[in-house]
Amino acid sequence: MNTRIQVTVNGVQYSHMVEPRLLLVHYLRDVLRLTGTHVGCDTSSCGACTIHVNGKATKCCTMLAVQANGCQITTIEGLSHNGDLHPLQEGFKECHGLQCGFCTPGMIMTAADLLQHNPQPTENDIRHALEGNFCRCTGYHNIVKSVLYAAEKLKEHAVVH
């Protein structure tokens, strides 16, 4: 009855037998113990569970683990490289874009997807891109500033290299 899945999460390959009804978010949290991805609802409404599946922002509370078979997954734990924070992680800290931190991983992963295809977003672009992620603490003001900060940082980075 259980099915074998093979996934690459944050660059590491895993192979597990899973129940067909196991949600991807619970696979990440309970099996791989990557608990940075959070569950805030069960209706894909809050975005706290947002990760990247094959490079695209995906709410993994409504995706089955078996659907991720063969996929490349990035979670918040895999966003920084060699100890350097991703510009978004830096932006959230610099601009006070988080308070309780519960929505933050999902918020950052959604914003990272935005910056991949729209590296210089306007305030409105950012607000529109983040409308699938709830934050109950910040009022979004500083989250918008955090993403603008990261976009600016990425631009500087692009100029340097």
């Binding site: 608990t35 940075g36 734990e77 992680q89 959230f92 931190g101």
Partner: peptide, 17 residues
Amino acid sequence: KRVEDKRFITGHGNYTD
């Protein structure tokens, strides 16, 4: 800047669940 942020932005917060 907040000292607690590092664990939250890297996914290393420790919530009850």
